[in-house]
Amino acid sequence: MPVQTAPEAPGISQDALRELIAGFPRDQSSLIPLLQQVQEQCGYIPRDAVDSVAGALGLFPSQVFGVITFYSQFYTAPRGRNVVRVCRGTACHVRGGKKILQLIQNELGIQDGETTPDFRFSLETVACLGACALSPVMVVNHSYYGKMNPKKIAAVLSQYASR
């Protein structure tokens, strides 16, 4: 059995960060798109990236934090390689979305907003994915899975067991 090494927390190098920043006008209107690109690269907004971004756009780090913490898209802690999003929209709720979430939480062993210790999965809920006719819906990374029922959960998650 292979030895389980502690996974490294992903981050973003200063060079990569500088390259990203270079692509944007140096003012506040770039803040959200820039943060979105940082997160695209490493899955969250590392602490040291905040200072560089703030400096580049002429903002205080507190202002950058204010934006990061306001929008639910941004994370300040590393997330798993596979992000599982369970829809908690109205149509999904009416068709049993709550149960799906419970079962996924049991299956993964984590709650909404948490990441598995091996960084394989992060679980979050989304207000609505816009695929309401398929309710209940879950998304893993960019793949949508509709008409979820308890039987399908294990099958879907096992596709990502080795990623």
Partner: peptide, 20 residues
């Protein structure tokens, strides 16, 4: 960036401006 309130006009504007 994941905020329902940004569907509201003035909140949306604030978001484009890079604010909360």
């Amino acid at each position: 960036a994941g905020a329902f309130v940004c569907g509201e006009e003035t909140a949306l504007i604030a978001s484009i401006e890079g604010k909360r």
